[in-house]
């Protein structure tokens, strides 16, 4: 069943490419350009998924696995990830779909992202991860929608039905995204359409991924690790590894059809060094944090996991710090 990741990935890649869904830009534009277009796309997708993912869990089609809370990993890992994504010129999903659009810097960024994640999982950085694992916090799931042991969520902390915080957060995010002014951008596939498409695809990702034995929704970091495990150690490709290949193919197809595919190269070779360093920081940070902008922000926030809330705050702060250093003037 791991191959279903390929189908989900292709659709995901098309949405990311057509919707220009870059979280690095989303977080940064609001600081540097006072532009909230992609920022709102992200938060609308989170608000809608809080309902759609919980709905399929309520139906008994999946059980939700909110990520484990680890203050050290979620704070330090996410902050390093946030710094890295500015250097790499894209977030985890950004460098992945841009590789499919022919951006050569993104190809380097993505490969070094995978290497950084591998190094934190079991390589030179793994001592940090092993040490930090001592601070892992899990609790008993307080609802049948959850697995038995989960990272704490707003629902487990207050011991309330998960629908209560999900409805409140969804209502607040919908009010904020739809009720306040949004920066204009002349796109055919606008931010609302992209957010709705993501909120529909997300539960499908959870269902197919759990059927393949991987208890989570959208993800990027684990997928790149899986690709390296297959490439180097001949292990079977997992659901999220297929998903990554799908994203690249989807973005390739979408950009070819829109005549937006082009092999692009910056004039200053230093840019390659910058994206390689950024990629390593992102990969190592994401693996330590237990997720990237997709695992924690896009997929984790809708589960209202405390780990994803903490990690999202710190990956945004990391992004702002590096964007301020490099681009404020």
């Amino acid at each position: 069943m791991a191959w279903t990741g390929l189908l989900v990935g292709v659709v995901f890649g098309i949405i990311l490419q057509r919707g220009r869904v870059c979280f690095n830009s989303a977080f940064r534009d609001i600081l540097l350009f006072k532009d909230n277009y992609l920022w709102k796309l992200g938060f609308l997708a989170v608000g809608l998924q809080a309902i759609t993912v919980l709905f399929v869990a309520q139906m008994g089609w999946i059980r939700i696995a909110p990520p484990t809370l680890n203050f050290f990993g979620n704070i330090v890992g996410a902050y390093v990830f946030g710094l890295g994504m500015v250097l790499a010129g894209g977030c985890a999903s950004g460098v992945t779909y841009r590789a499919g659009e022919g951006m050569t810097t993104a190809m380097f960024g993505a490969v070094f992202y995978g290497l950084g994640a591998l190094a934190m999982r079991g390589g030179v950085f793994s001592g940090i991860r092993t040490w930090a694992a001592g601070f892992n916090i899990t609790v008993a799931g307080n609802s049948p929608v959850y697995f038995d042991k989960v990272g704490p969520t707003l629902a487990t902390i207050f011991n309330i039905n998960p629908w209560i915080p999900a409805a409140i957060v969804a209502a607040l995010l919908l009010w904020y995204t739809l009720g306040t002014k949004t920066t204009d951008r002349p796109t055919k596939f606008n931010w609302k359409m992209a957010a709705i498409a993501l909120a529909i695809l997300s539960p499908i990702a959870w269902i197919t991924s759990e059927a393949a034995g991987r208890n989570y929704g959208f993800g990027i970091t684990g997928g790149w690790i899986s690709i390296f495990d297959t490439f180097i150690s001949n292990q079977p490709l997992r659901w999220d590894g297929y998903e990554i290949i799908g994203i690249i193919l989807g973005a390739l197809i979408a950009s070819l059809l829109a005549k937006e595919f082009k092999l692009r190269m910056p004039k200053n070779p230093k840019t390659y060094l910058q994206v390689m360093v950024g990629g390593i920081m992102m990969g190592a940070g994401a693996n330590l944090a237990g997720g990237c902008n997709i695992g924690h922000f896009l997929a984790g926030l809708p589960t209202l996991a405390i780990s994803s809330i903490v990690a999202s705050i710190f990956l945004i702060l990391g992004n702002w710090t590096m964007a301020y250093i490099l681009y404020r003037k």
């Binding site: 870059c22 690095n24 830009s25 940064r28 534009d29 540097l32 350009f33 790499a88 010129g89 894209g90 950004g94 951006m103 050569t104 810097t105 692009r264 190269m265 910056p266 004039k267 840019t271 910058q274 994206v275 681009y327 003037k329």
Partner: peptide, 16 residues
């Protein structure tokens, strides 16, 4: 000429 530059270099160079 900001062809091939990583995001957001084209935007920032334009502003500068």
């Amino acid at each position: 000429d900001v062809r091939g530059e990583v995001c957001p270099v084209p935007d920032v160079e334009t502003k500068r």
